[in-house]
Design a protein around this nucleic acid. Sequence first.
RNA 1: GCCGACGUAGCUCAGCUGGUAGAGCACUUCACUCGUAAUGAAGGGGUCCUCGGUUCGAGUCCGAGCGUCGGCUCCA
Length: 638
Amino acid sequence: MHVVLPNGSELELPEGASGLDAARAIGPKLAEQAVLVRADGQVQDLRAPLRDGQRLQVLTVRDADDPDALAVLRHSSAHLLAEAVRRLHPDVQLAIGPPIADGFYYDFLFPEPIAEADLEPIEAEVKREIAEGREWSREVISRDEARVRFEAEGQPFKVELVDSAEGDISLYRQDDFIDLCRGPHLQNAKPIRAIKLTGLAGAYWRGDSSKPQLTRIYGTAFYSQADLDAHLERLEEARKRDHRRLGVQLDLFHLDEISPGSPFWHPKGMVIFNALEDLRRRENARRGYVEVKTPLIFDKTLWERSGHWEKFREHMFVIPGEDRTYGIKPMNCPGHMALFAHQLRSYRELPLRYAEAAPLHRNELAGALHGLTRVRHVTQDDAHIFCTREQIEDEIFGCLDYAKFLYDLFDLEASFELSTRPESKLGTDEEWDFTEGALQAALERRGLEYALNPGDGAFYGPKIDLHMTDSLGRSWQMGTIQLDSQQPARLGCRYVGADNAEHVPYVIHRALFGSLERFIGILTEHYAGAFPFWIAPVQVRVLPVGEDHREAAQELAARLAPYRVEVDASDETVGKRIRNAEVEKIPFVVVYGDKESHESLAIREHGGEQRTLSLAGFRAELATLLPWQAGAEPSLTS
RNA sequence: GCCGACGUAGCUCAGCUGGUAGAGCACUUCACUCGUAAUGAAGGGGUCCUCGGUUCGAGUCCGAGCGUCGGCUCCA
């Protein structure tokens, strides 16, 4: 048989030859450095047989940036970790150990709990194994054999994995350590030039909190020490743009244990908050929403009718009273539906779009709180669209278009996910077929790529979620667009149709920033604290050079109204005050001294670039930095 | 909620094997009035997260609680 090499040439091989055989046929050096092969685009173990006519690419230690090459290195590293842990803790039970985005982990059940200090000897043992040398070999046995083997070894998790596997079982051996594994793996441990154990955490077996909690050891590995160093440096850089750190440095907000999970917004943070609110109000008005305000607390009977009491009672703040119990609202929907249901509506009123960015409170699990990205006091840019069945697709389309408009305004890349019916749901499968189909149609019509997230919908309907990652690569849900075919009926929403009969409207729940708190957290990291001009807390800082220039500086600041301008007339050198403005990431600094006049201003942009502009010229330029004034109004793209 | 770590001045952090606290920045005052990322000097500031225990003596050791951080689970 023959295979096709990346340069297009063909290589003759004996029948049943492996990727390693192919590499050997090309050259001994290549065979030695090979870590993995890609056959017709699919990665496979070097030892796996090739098929006639396949396009073949041999990945080597030189492909240090290739995701597949890194994954195999880390997967093999996880096996070395398991071997080391079993040698140091012979009674440990092994679960699973896959490669992940930035490294790998392995889950263990230790007879005695271990602490972070125990990682050091384990890492030393892994390094000893690498120095000593390890080779991987693959073996395929039947499921029965595998079960007997792992039962004899006292490895119940492996037995469970064998039982849930299909077909024969492959094992990988290195030295005297044998692990159940699909592969692929390295030939030997030589390519693992840098390895580091990075953390310890609890993790439930099979991700199920009702199952035993295992101990997960995280690590990472690279083809070179330089790559590991670069990785650690990237992490350090990312930490510098962490919104929790920048939020304190830039005086935007703080958190206090007096109210965990509820930010104190400082004046500068509020400027950003209000800039987003202004944007929300302006766009809502343009897109046909109306603003409403509904109560913050409701009798618990409302939550019982909406279905939230049963499902989310644990996560609600409840106010017990003498004769009735109130729940502080964790979301706006029941309030908006009670408002809609207050009157009998006509189909002529639909679609009716209620918007309200009310403060919501959710008693999130203590361990889930996280800076601004997971809070108990949350402000959603919420809206509920009451519409007919026929209007659903257009309205979903409108929401998607609106979301895209907002994200483009901030140069944010969001990924879209369609979440479908969960196990515990209200309504029939026929109803869900229809609602899921409507969301899918709108996504496709707007031309958005999306991932399917089966089973992750809300209990009342499917949803489209917008996800973004923070500076450390963690994914967060931002916007959400949810179709609800259940709550409106439960809460008595009705309208009279053209047929003069009563109907229940559909409701689209949508929040596009998602939570303003989380959005500001993500924005802070996205811009590393250097916010664009139009949302920057201080937009311009004027620095009078000497005492004699203070009055003129004040005059200049007044002439820059209504921009957010400050005069820094403190007793510091010009250099120090410029440094302060840089540290505060203020977009523009205007130094004003003997050489300046309103005809000739010294403008310094954040970062150091300097220019001379007249006051009128400067104002004209600032105006171009307001997105809604830059040329034409943003237009609907439908 | 679960596993692990951490909690010292406004911020970032030091404080060895127990002997009642320290730096830089910030702040206040004084001098300097300054030209594009840190002028100099002096000074003020801490229930060492909380409660309990061990000890002659606890920031330091032990226990519990609270909070934060890294994960897991959850996220209307």
